[in-house]
Nucleic acid binder design. Structure first.
Lengths: 139, 139
DNA sequence: ATTCTTGCAAAGCATTTGCACCCTG
DNA sequence: CAGGGTGCAAATGCTTTGCAAGAAT
């Protein structure tokens, strides 16, 4: 990803172009494997210059907010436990801490068949969980 | 969930039956909405007796390990960022910190159609992300 | 000047760890 | 008395926050 493209991305999102943002964005694009904040910090420190930890976190938040980059989906709260042990999926409530179980064998078969017919080279599937995001319209 | 069932669960898993474990397990079964450790701590303190924080965490870990209860899937590390903004899914490597993107429009359509035909009462879907767990057999 | 950014260090929170004690077979 | 279980408090690790200083328009 070239400097010009990074500049363009920032401009499109309405953010000012600063050396810190350019460096952070370049780190995210360069580090392929869904980097953590720490990996981004290390990369920036090595390749560019010192950027404060707090700034990295703030900047990453800003970039996610503006839709320039994404976050790998996690519950982003504390770990939550589950009393159901059968295979099941989850419904997440947007802006809601609710998580409901979703059990549907037909869906399981559908996915199983799909991946039997659409083998992923170099990867052996163990299990598939569907994360459904949406809004609860009851209770 | 009755005391006898909880005792049976513990016994089946080869764990000793202790008041702490019974109380924690009852909390997980009673608290419906995928409780956090903190919610379990509060519940136990209110309904039963004081159990040390460290004990709750250790016990929950043990119960998950023995397959008595589950954890809601999260990356359980630090937040990870994603440079790809198109809709996509993720391949997770078991025992591997790798996360790869999986892009497949056919899968997206399949899921979309499935949920059009299988409406979830009281819930409005915004987005669907498939978490695929498995093993990378390359690199 | 006003607003947006940054640096820095302290604070916050969820979770883990180390160790002493305890109980049970 | 050996091993598993627990309590407690300190430590860890990731992330956030508050505030003062700097840069940009």
């Amino acid at each position: 990803m070239y400097r010009e493209e990074i500049h363009a991305k920032l401009q499109q999102s309405g953010l000012k172009i600063t050396p810190q943002r350019v460096a952070i964005l370049r780190a995210v694009y360069t580090l392929q494997n869904h980097p953590t904040a720490q990996q981004i910090i290390d990369f920036v420190h090595e390749r560019d210059f010192n950027v404060a930890t707090g700034t990295i976190y703030k900047t990453l938040d800003t970039l996610v907010e503006k839709g320039v980059i994404g976050k790998v989906q996690n519950t982003e709260e504390a770990t939550r436990y589950d009393s159901r042990m059968e295979h099941h999926h989850h419904l997440y409530g947007d802006g809601d801490s609710r998580i409901e179980d979703y059990v549907n064998e037909e869906l399981d078969h559908l996915l199983e068949n799909f991946f039997l017919q659409n083998n992923i080279p170099g990867y052996e599937i163990n299990s598939i969980h569907v994360h459904i995001n949406g809004r609860f319209t009851r209770e």
